[in-house]
Each structure stands twice: as structure tokens, then as C-alpha cells.
Amino acid sequence: MKKIIVACGGAVATSTVAADAIKELCEKNGISAEVIQMRIIEIENNLDGIDLVVTTMKIVPNFDIPYVNGMPFLTGINKEETEKRILSYIKD
């Protein structure tokens, strides 16, 4: 079971779009994953046991866990590359 944080400013709008896309991506590739949505300011306090962090805006990560910018899920530009990068981190 992989644990993925998907975060945006308000934990409602943009992160839901990205989280939905990531859930579908995991299902398609047969990866069992838990997607946890939160606000960006909450990430730091919730990193225990997390395999990957995706945010819908650019941040400078101050943690060691793999990080992917999930903006392509909103704009549609470079979406496939982003999906590949995400898979590379959570595939066994």
C-alpha cells in the first residue's frame, strides 16, 4: 500500500482534480495506493509513512520524500510525463 499526499491551497478544488487523476492512474496500473488530500501548509506535519508528495502548485520541498509538481493535471500540458514520473516513484 502506497501513501500519496496530494495538496493544494484549500484542499478542495485543484487537489481534488489531481487526486482523482492519480487514483485512476494507480487503478489502471494495478497499484494499491491511498491518496490523502490536504492543504499545502499541512504537509510538513503529516509526512510519516508517505511515499510521494504531489502539489498542484510549485513549491520548494523542504522534505526528503519524492516530490512531483501536479500542475499538468490541471492544465493538461505534459500530463503523460507527469504520470510517468509519479509511476516511477510508486511502482514496486
Binding site: G10, A13, T56, M57, K58
Partner: peptide, 30 residues
């Protein structure tokens, strides 16, 4: 809506309108 609008207006002259939640992670904003 996204795919249709993007297909029609994918020229670089356009800005894609997105949620300003994208700005909320900036350190000064935080």
C-alpha cells in the same frame, strides 16, 4: 470544458485561467 477549451485556444497567446489556490503555497503568502 477543459479539453474543449484547450483544443480551441491552445495558442501561446492565451493564458489558462486556474484556481488561485495555486498561489497559497508561496512562503510569504503562508
Amino acid at each position: 470544458a477543459r479539453t474543449k477549451l484547450q483544443k480551441k485556444f491552445k495558442n501561446s497567446k492565451f493564458y489558462i485561467g486556474l484556481d488561485c489556490a495555486l498561489l497559497l503555497g508561496d512562503p510569504v503568502v503562508v
